[in-house]
Design a binder for these strands. Structure first.
Lengths: 138, 138
DNA sequence: CCTAATTGCTCTAGTAACTAGAGGTTCAAG
DNA sequence: CTTGAACCTCTAGTTACTAGAGCAATTAGG
């Protein structure tokens, strides 16, 4: 059985975050010692690592909850898992596209100014003026 | 003088958001009619468009506040504006890098599964298993 | 001039995903 | 048995809004 601190250091998820996950029902409630402290079975570490990685991948807690549910029922179709992953991939690609447009625009903006007083600073006017943007962003 | 609704539709910023901006001091307090409704001078539209565009560029309200401050003092050095824009550009490039790593990983994950039950679904195990990731992400 | 529809007002509370801090308790080592 | 680290609960704060309740003002049509 692991303490919450141990679970935290092994999973890379902070202690208050673990308690938070329990609170919102993403993590099963832990057993308690006589003194009311949480003790976790090794399986909790697996689960937390799963959650952690999925978070790193950018999935929302809601999506993760669905995946956790799914892995609790190994007999169910994994179509949902595919759907979640694919939807997310679409999302990521979309963000990539918009970030690239953004990068060019910021490059243009920062390159456009070589003055030294705010009054003639092109950065300020470039930010005001959306019409100069080449592509659309966000 | 513009009503808040007009200001909203011309700027693309929603009405409650405009009130929120006023509340946090990002936008000057508007004049009021005898009946307590806000009325805005055309300059408010300029300002809101600036804010809107800066938000679209991904700047935080805090950063925007600095820029607004700066443009209120045209005599001051614009070094700060450069710093803000450059820092943000760095941020964007960083996110771009990580999103690309993410894209490859998601591609790998979704391509890896052709089963139909959650029990043998590679998506679920791939998400558990960070060690398969090629690059680091987030 | 009156009425109805639209737009406006304030206030509270909710969202995501945590994080920070207060104030107190339990545990493990020496 | 004492001490100090780790634990507990609870409240409130973060960012940038959004939603809704309940009511007041404005504007267009008749």
């Amino acid at each position: 059985m692991l303490t919450i601190g141990r679970l935290s250091s092994e999973s890379g998820v902070k202690v208050p975050t673990i308690r938070y996950y329990e609170e919102i029902g993403l993590l099963e409630e832990a057993e308690r010692t006589a003194g009311n402290q949480r003790r976790y079975p090794p399986a909790a570490l697996e689960r937390l690592r799963f959650i952690r990685h999925a978070r790193d991948l950018g999935l929302s807690l809601e999506q993760i909850e669905e995946l956790v549910e799914l892995s609790n029922h190994p007999d169910r179709s994994c179509t949902e898992a595919h759907a979640i992953a694919n939807t997310h991939l679409e999302h990521v690609r979309d963000r990539l596209r918009r970030l690239k447009a953004l990068e060019s625009e910021l490059e243009r903006i920062t390159a456009s100014c070589d003055s030294h007083t705010a009054g003639e600073c092109n950065i300020l006017s470039a930010i005001s003026d959306h019409s100069l943007c080449s592509g659309e962003h966000d």
